[in-house]
Design a protein around this nucleic acid. Structure first.
Lengths: 240, 240
DNA sequence: TTTTCGTCTATTGTATACAATAAAGGTGAA
DNA sequence: TTCACCTTTATTGTATACAATAGACGAAAA
């Protein structure tokens, strides 16, 4: 019945608290505090910490404690550029096995997204939900569990930021348009176009995320060269 | 001084035992056995298990125990196709900031690899070492820590297999030739060529790995379609 | 002979207790 | 008043002890 250990449960709950923003970046997570919150003892909490650390959601300072991971502009850049590549790979793999029904499922997801946007006030949670369905269809078709795991992890790391991005009406419209075009390109079997659109979609999100980020941390983004910390579309032009 | 916790130490040691093949795939890792081996108590061992599980090196069956992860052909395919994309992205990013000195460092690594191959009996460990230096230079230049972490993880998962692959003289020669060409392409700034070579290099390794794998598990590789579980070079043609 | 049920044991899951360390605060002297 | 050092305290790191569960083995009945 209760197959999940308390450690796994705690991991999920703490993760949820982090990605929803209840636990803010930089905040220390004290073991005893979480013990009393979840009414369990410390070992499961510690195990949850270890897993969350591996996921990159918390950082551990030895003998100091664990803290919610902070996102610098560099971190944002890292996650989004990776997402651009991951999504392109997923799209390419998915198109190799996609059927007409799959294409229709994608279009249905886009239709749902359209419906949400068309009926103000826009329910962002709802939009996010259908948006996720869209990408989940693609990931499932791709058939690479490790790819899906990486995508999931990257999504967690920028979940708050990507949610905030949707509050920008212009970006919301652009996002919707992108997904409509991506679905069409995938249906028609135009792989280069689908990949280009996927890349452009993610890199546009990156640009917005960088502007949304509080500009408190002015650390350099790239160590070498004067490459700006932005959406270098050309740079991500590689052959999968 | 001893900044690392026993859990972190245990993780490293167990991981080393797994990737060197001392702990075989499918083998159960009993907590008490490792306790007596490392002369520590169970909590640090359990923490190490959690981290290794997140890395994908072990799988945990609830109330049963943890087992060294097994690699099916599907798993091999997943890891290598991901590596192909990861390495291409790394190469593309690296070339954007690469200096002449960096190019020379790459060529130096290739020279070391060449020297090892030229002096039989070939010291595979030594070759592997210089091979890793080559890719580490590229990853460092890429400047994406998350990308590096993913690459590291993927490398761990197929470390035994990739080592075994080197015992094939033909593949060893091909590997060397690839890296020489990749270094040249990166030096000349020919990004498409460098990416294509990276992809071809990894996908060739995939084909070999699939033949080397014991054919005990005949499970289907892809759920949908009749796509063969091989190096679909074209399929991985996407725009980073 | 086979199958099923029950007990038993080995192993994981959880809790409590103890040790060690690092940061914070206070006290002393310069 | 300020700085250095000591003491204290809060928090993590580790160990031991207990509980629960799943699998194995054996016995009994069909």
């Amino acid at each position: 019945m209760d197959v999940e250990s308390l450690g796994d449960l705690a991991q999920k709950q703490i993760r949820e608290l982090i990605i929803t923003g209840a636990f803010k970046p930089g905040q220390q997570l004290k073991e005893e505090e979480l013990c009393s919150r979840f009414q369990i003892s410390r070992p499961p909490i510690r195990e949850a910490f270890k897993m969350l650390e591996a996921e990159g959601l918390v950082t551990r300072k030895p003998r100091r404690g664990v803290f919610v991971a902070e996102m610098t502009p560099k971190d944002i850049w890292e996650v989004y550029t990776l997402k651009a590549v991951i999504y392109q790979m997923a799209a390419a793999l998915a198109m190799a096995v996609m059927t007409d029904e799959d294409a229709q499922a994608l279009e249905a997801a886009v239709a749902q997204m359209t419906a949400v946007v068309a009926s103000p006030p826009v329910d962002l949670r709802q939009y996010q939900l259908h948006h996720r369905v869209f990408h989940e269809i693609v990931m499932t078709l791709a058939g690479n569990d490790r790819l899906a795991k990486i995508e999931r992890n990257l999504r967690f790391q920028v979940s708050r930021i990507s949610y905030t991005s949707l509050k920008d009406p212009t970006h919301l419209q652009a996002s919707l348009a992108y997904h409509r075009q991506i679905a069409a390109a995938m249906k028609q079997g135009d792989r280069p176009l689908a990949c280009r659109l996927m890349k452009a979609h993610v890199l546009e999100a990156l640009d917005l995320a960088l502007t949304l980020l509080p500009v408190d941390s002015g650390e350099p983004v790239r160590d070498r060269g004067a490459a700006p910390l932005s959406a270098d579309a050309d740079l991500l032009e590689v052959a999968l």
